[in-house]
């Protein structure tokens, strides 16, 4: 059996006449932690949106565990085992912290609509199972103390953590994190990275990470893809990326890679 989890072939998308992303060929092996970097507007989030079915690629294909993802809706992609966080936090603000995680746990329990309406035993056992699992996820992220709080009332850093907890509750094999450390201070960022390393090991996850903080990406990722103007301009180990002239050029004037 190959170790390959997901592969894109010449993936691209056009908006109107504009080619936002084109010719992206990437792959992730099981268990890898891969970085996706690039200047603002390079198409990183658009790539995430294609991988999760939010946008349909207009060119090329995506294969996940041997299955084509093209044409699938986001919820179908999620059920296959790809989960994500959002760059601009998208929590269910008026739901409690616990319920946020429970929503993602939706497909864990199988009790039917009618069993819930008539309060049949399968409803109670299913709901109890969801509650138990969800609290487990909250505990990992240190969020169980806030479980009855509205998501909107959490401090910013905690909201970012809750997004990851929620993504994890959807039971993914592949987790896509879109700038999880954005807006965090160095200490929070450090804690978050340890946490990501921990859940990766604990749940046997494969992770694709968009991040602006170069130091961080270089520190924890095994391989890195670099996007610029919608195209992959480089991939390789952090060491290779650091010394790649194309990457340096793309970032010139924006950020210095140390």
């Amino acid at each position: 059996m190959s170790n390959l989890l997901i592969k894109t072939e010449n993936m691209g998308i056009q908006f109107g006449g504009l080619k936002a992303v084109q010719n992206v060929n990437m792959y992730l092996n099981k268990g890898e932690l891969i970085g996706l970097i690039g200047p603002n507007g390079a198409g990183k989030t658009t790539t995430f949106n294609m991988l999760t079915g939010v946008y349909q690629p207009t060119e090329g294909g995506i294969t996940f565990e041997g299955k084509k993802l093209n044409g699938l809706k986001p919820y179908q992609v999620s059920k296959l085992g790809i989960s994500r966080t959002f760059q601009n936090i998208r929590l269910f603000k008026d739901l409690s912290v616990l319920d946020n995680v429970k929503v993602a746990n939706h497909n864990l329990a199988k009790h039917s609509l009618l069993s819930s309406i008539f309060r049949l035993p399968s409803h109670f056992s299913g709901e109890a199972k969801m509650e138990k699992e969800s609290i487990e996820f909250l505990k990992i992220f240190g969020l169980d103390v806030y479980k009855d709080e509205f998501a909107k009332n959490l401090p910013y850093g905690m909201q970012r953590r809750l997004e990851i907890a929620r993504a994890l509750a959807a039971n993914p094999q592949l987790l896509l994190l879109d700038e999880p450390a954005a807006g965090m201070n160095p200490q929070e960022t450090h804690d978050l990275m340890e946490l990501i390393a921990f859940i990766r090991k604990e749940f046997g996850l494969t992770i694709l990470l968009i991040e602006h903080d170069m130091h961080l990406v270089m520190g924890i990722c095994e391989r890195i893809y670099v996007l610029d103007h919608g195209q992959l301009i480089a991939d390789g180990t952090p060491e290779e990326i650091r010394n790649n002239p194309k990457v340096i050029e793309a970032y010139l004037g924006e950020e210095v890679i140390d």
């Binding site: 999760t52 939010v54 809706k73 986001p74 919820y75 999620s78 059920k79 989960s83 994500r84 959002f86 998208r90 929590l91 269910f92 603000k93 008026d94 739901l95 319920d99 429970k102 929503v103 993602a104 939706h106 497909n107 929620r166 993504a167 509750a169 959807a170």
Partner: peptide
């Protein structure tokens, strides 16, 4: 809860498997 998540944020609900 699935329905409420749609009210709160349809795109996130979809991404979470609803």
């Amino acid at each position: 809860r699935g329905c409420i998540s749609i009210r709160e944020d349809e795109i996130a609900a979809d991404a979470m498997g609803i």
